[in-house]
Simulated assay, not measured.
Amino acid sequence: MGSKYIVIEGLEGAGKTSAREWVVETLRAQGIDNMVFTREPGGTPLAEKLRALTLDINATGDEIVTEKAEVLMFYAARIQLVETVIKPALARGAWVIGDRHDLSTQAYQGGGRGIDSRLLQTLRDAVLGDFAPDLTLYLDVTPEVGLARARARGALDRIEQESLDFFNRTRERYLELAAADPRIVKIDATQPLADVRRDICETIVRWVKEHR
């Protein structure tokens, strides 16, 4: 079985870190050990600097990051990661497990910010072309539950401090996109952890068997 790119998506507090552990555990049980881990934005020196500019509330001082500047920085960080880390890893036979990818931009900037979907599609096509994850696990959680979990972790970043309406719009777009793409599997992340873990592990086992 060739290399694959699996992405874990969801709102703040959805449980992406735990989900990654379960994905890795399940893949190893299937005999897959050669894995590379990424996060977006970030994952390269340049992309980490862009991450700080977009997420650190104090990174730009009094200067407000505009919505279009934000989305362009996300795409700059993304393509740097894709071209210098993800594609080379896939080419040498590694599986890549990613914390967020383009679905985040479509949901957060398209749904939450309300940026025209045509602009986002144009950017996506120009920057990424036909490159896309082989499988995306979307961890679905209500903003109320997710933000409560995020606050319990500590200080919130610039986007995490957005309004509840922003996150409701983001979640709605996530759900729309997940329903329209068979490569995206929705996981109910409001369930008890044992049930979330079961659903993720079963999804990975089934998917690996289908693609061997």
Rank of each mutant, 00 (worst) to 15 (best):
A178Y: 06
K209M: 11
R171L: 15
V23W: 01
T66Y: 04
G15K: 02
R149G: 06
G112Q: 06
F37V: 00
A89I: 10
E144P: 03
I57T: 13
T170E: 01
E162S: 13
S3Y: 01
E83Q: 15
L46A: 11
L156Y: 05
A180M: 11
R183M: 05
I204L: 01
I159D: 01
T84H: 14
G31L: 02
R151A: 12
G43R: 04
D140P: 02
F37G: 02
I115Q: 09
R171D: 05
R124D: 15
E172Q: 14
L55D: 08
T66D: 12
E40N: 06
L175P: 03
I184T: 10
N58L: 11
E25W: 03
V36L: 12
R151Q: 14
A194P: 00
M1V: 08
D181T: 11
V85L: 15
E12H: 10
L50P: 01
I86T: 11
A19P: 05
G98A: 14
A152V: 02
A47S: 13
T136R: 04
V205D: 04
G146F: 09
L177M: 14
G43E: 02
R118K: 15
D157H: 07
V185A: 04
R39G: 06
L120H: 06
G31E: 02
A94L: 00
P192T: 09
K68G: 01
F131P: 03
L137Y: 00
V24N: 00
A148P: 04
V145T: 14
V141D: 03
